[in-house]
């Protein structure tokens, strides 16, 4: 039934970190599409250009939950610039791999972070992330998730 998940994925699935919502978040990113399965919401609190707190909520499979959980750990305490460098590939590596059919979950996690930062920048500077559009949205239009 379930794909072959790594121990790391199972560990984050069973004990997800940083779950929930932040009071008065500085940035909120919500990505995904209910028709295709997963929805991720990420909220950040930024202090002195550093992500002081981050919380997530995810509707989706074990891979979607695990990727969002580990992604929050990977950006917490990082500067905005550092957080923007987080790629879906790094998320996959941190999880000790994902089944090919689940790679799109890691793209969603990267997108959720960028969407939250985009929202934060819009609110604080008036302009969002330059030249950025969520990759996961594009894929959903094409109705394909495999890379």
């Amino acid at each position: 039934m379930s794909p072959n998940y790594s121990e790391k994925v199972m560990e984050h699935f069973k004990n997800p970190r940083n779950v929930g919502e932040i009071d008065n978040p500085d940035g909120v990113g919500k990505v995904g599409n209910p028709q295709c399965g997963d929805i991720m919401e990420m909220q950040i609190k930024v202090k002195d250009n550093v992500i002081a707190d981050v919380k997530f909520r995810t509707f989706g499979c074990a891979a979607a939950i695990a990727t969002s959980s580990i992604a929050t750990e990977m950006i917490k305490g990082k500067t905005i610039e550092e957080a923007l460098k987080l790629t879906n590939k790094a998320v996959v590596e941190a999880l000790e791999g994902l089944p090919p059919v689940k790679i799109h979950c890691s793209v969603l996690a990267e997108d959720a972070i960028k969407a939250a930062i985009d929202d934060y920048l819009r609110k604080s500077t008036g302009t969002g992330l330059q030249g950025w559009t969520p990759r996961s949205d594009v894929e959903e239009e094409e109705h394909g998730h495999q890379h």
Partner: peptide, 11 residues
Amino acid sequence: VEGESMSMFLD
């Protein structure tokens, strides 16, 4: 909630 997650916890 999503079915794979539920069925994995049930498993």
